[in-house]
Amino acid sequence: MKRDLMKLRVLVIDANEARAAGTQAALAAEGCIVLTPPPAPVPPLADLVQVLRPDAVLIEMDNPNRDALEQAHILQPSGRGAPILLFAPGGDEEAVAEALRAGVSAYAAPGLDFAKVKPLLDLAIAHFRAFSTLKAELAAAQQSLADRKLIERAKGIVMRERGCGEEEAYRHLRRLAMDRGQRLSEIAQQIITITALLSK
């Protein structure tokens, strides 16, 4: 893979700075020349591409600048550095569809062999996926932390009301959750809500 991507000039356009930095680092590690867009306000992308002349551009799918980027070749049919969507004839449609599902689109300079850019696309897909996985894991971790706090509070209420110990309170909660077919955190939330209501 390293040999394939060596010296390929790549521009990464991604409003998500952390993800962009990650992608850029991964590309650099593979021997790519990573081009950096100037700080905001970024000039029209059609101009930027003319100046930076990338071999390939990786751009997050939801970036409105995609339209600016891919029309460059229609307006300047002879212009090098006018990238085309990797859907182009000879491209691997399934690979590109996969990239779009991952939320990344890639463009390459006309004439560049698809096989040469394919590893680039794979790398980008992996990176975008890893990022959404990370985000999902973070969200899950935060949720479980929030759930645990709820359960602790509900346990405290049960201990107080029943005059029982922590373990017994937890068993009560768990049995209730199993009987009702609800999640432990949902039961905990109900107990907290009802207690708050009754204590007013």
């Binding site: 799918m61 939801d62 409105p64 891919e70 859907f87 569809a97 779009l100 599902r101």
Partner: peptide
């Protein structure tokens, strides 16, 4: 709501 015409085209293309 889509961010670009290219997105609209590509999403229709892949069936999204």
């Amino acid at each position: 709501r889509e961010a670009s015409w290219a997105n609209i085209r590509d999403k229709v293309l892949v069936g999204a």
